[in-house]
Design a binder for these strands. Structure first.
Length: 451
RNA sequence: GGCGACGUGGCCGAGUGGCUGAGGCAAGGGCCUGCAAAGCCCUCCACAUGGGUUCGAUUCCCAUCGUCGCCUCCA
């Protein structure tokens, strides 16, 4: 069974399932106010691989991932551009899911929106106020953090230490809160801002409430796994958890966080810094699968730098894999080599050791290629194992594309020239095909072209 | 100030108290090929620095240097 590092206990431990055969996962999704950046891409890819691996393992995965469609960033952009905030959220959301589809990230089983859960949030905040864990001020409702027993568990910080910290960002409601650590649950609307009714006044929910309400609603108490980027650990996840704890609810059983994407200088890629290399650009310039490949070769918890060299190397890997897929396209499905799959599971179950699993994939591809060359009996089992691993990774290999008739004709002409020992003619045809962007592979069986 | 991550060969990137040490990309050599491509085989071989523990450390401990993250609305 899968063992994963758990942020709350700071240990790698078995992912215990509340219900045998079923996994419930909550993944913090995007705030839809701009194009997805590389960090979003990493997070979704990491959890897509997790999901596919679990499904491949025969588990039924329920993956709920929210869309935050009400937030200050959205309002700010709407004001700046003078258009309705819903314009921003709907267009950004479709851009998001188009990008995810292009990346090969499967759509979550549930995609709740914050705006669909405002009533439930108001209800929950009301309960927190009623039990004295939250309080209203002139500008909103805040959670009394000091009332939460083990606040700081996820971030591994003591409340007192955090209070001494010197964060230099603006803190909403700083002047009204009882304690600087308290965070806002409900923000009263200023004139012209989108708002929903509540007994404290019209307003909108604070960021951390939606995930509590939605995860508990869709997945129920004590769901299996809560995921997100490392930067969400604090404050977001800490504050989600604080609300659940304050309510006396069992929240996530296991917490998983993926590492940052860093730039060439090793600094975090951050949308708040504005140095976004966005995901759309990346996918426009490179094979979208290359990002997945690159991430598979690194461990999800470590930082990863995404750069030209990296991505191009990943593309070359894919070229080799595609070539493999093409030359083994005719190999019929068979029972996968059991030894390979056992090793594969060992790697993956060990805190999602995709680098090790990837090394195994390379090794298996190499062995299968050798088996193909040697016409050896183990071929089918190895090819099947490669196909299985790719499925578990969500990696789609491209065996062959549509080849236009004129290109196919040239390939045939090339073979004819070779057969006639007209090598100059054959070379000329090959150069033409290559110039047109095709990879030309000539084997005993004839010439094939791929893009 | 508090908490944390990291420093591995040309590049990327795993991992481990010792049989010598993934993998990928790049490079070089070979097989195959009319020549290529693809594939296969081989080569190149590292653990920031200084101490310490140890029979033995890249791996454990300490220190130093360097890089980075978080400390209340960033995946």
């Amino acid at each position: 069974m899968l063992h994963l590092y758990d942020t709350a206990t700071r240990k790698v431990r078995e992912l215990a399932l509340r219900e045998p055969g079923k996994v419930s996962i909550y993944l913090c999704g995007p705030t839809v106010y701009g194009p997805p950046h590389l960090g979003h891409g990493r997070a979704t890819l990491v959890y897509d691989v997790l999901r596919r691996y679990l499904e491949w393992s025969g588990l039924q995965v329920r993956l709920a991932s929210n869309v935050t469609d009400i937030d200050d960033s959205i309002i700010n952009r709407a004001n700046k551009e003078g258009r309705p905030w819903q314009d921003i959220t709907t267009s950004c959301e479709s851009v998001w899911f188009e990008a995810m589809a292009k990346l090969g990230v499967a759509r979550p089983t549930d995609v709740p929106h914050a705006t669909e859960y405002v009533d439930e949030m108001v209800e929950m905040i009301g309960q927190l106020v009623d039990i004295g864990r939250a309080y209203a001020t002139e500008d909103g409702v805040y959670l009394n953090v000091s009332s939460v027993e083990d606040y700081g568990l996820l971030s591994n910080q003591k409340l007192s230490d955090m209070l001494e910290g010197g964060g230099d960002r603006d803190v909403f409601g700083a002047e009204n809160k009882r304690s600087p650590a308290d965070f806002v649950l409900w923000k009263l609307a200023k004139p012209g801002e989108p708002s929903w009714p509540s007994k404290w006044g019209d307003g909108r929910p604070g960021w951390h409430s939606e995930c509590v309400v939605m995860s508990l609603d869709l997945l129920g108490e004590g769901f299996d796994l809560h995921c997100g980027g490392m930067d969400l650990k604090f404050p977001h996840h800490e504050n989600e958890r604080a609300q659940a704890v304050a309510l006396g609810k069992r929240f996530a059983n296991h917490w998983m966080h993926n590492g940052f994407v860093v730039d060439a200088e090793g600094e975090k890629m951050s949308k708040s810094l504005g140095n976004v290399d966005n995901l759309l650009d990346l996918m426009e310039h490179y094979d979208p699968r290359a990002y997945r490949m690159l991430l598979l070769q690194s461990h999800y918890r470590g930082p990863v730098s995404v750069g030209k060299d990296n991505i191009e190397a990943a593309e070359k890997v894919l070229a080799g894999f595609d070539s493999f897929a093409a030359r083994t396209a005719g190999v019929a499905d068979a029972t996968a080599d059991a030894e390979v799959l056992t090793k594969f599971r060992e790697h993956m179950d060990n805190d999602l050791d995709t680098p090790g699993a990837t090394a195994l994939l390379f090794d298996t591809v190499r062995r299968a290629n050798a088996a193909l060359d040697a016409n050896a009996p183990e071929l089918a089992g190895l090819v099947a194992a490669v196909r299985e691993m790719c499925t578990a990774f969500g990696l789609v290999l491209v065996a062959a594309q549509e080849v236009p008739a004129e290109i196919a004709a040239k390939a045939a002409a090339l073979d004819a020239a070779r057969a006639a020992k007209d090598f100059a003619g054959a070379d000329a045809l090959r150069d033409e095909l290559k110039a047109a962007g095709w990879t030309v592979e000539t084997t005993k069986a004839g010439t094939t072209v791929r893009r």
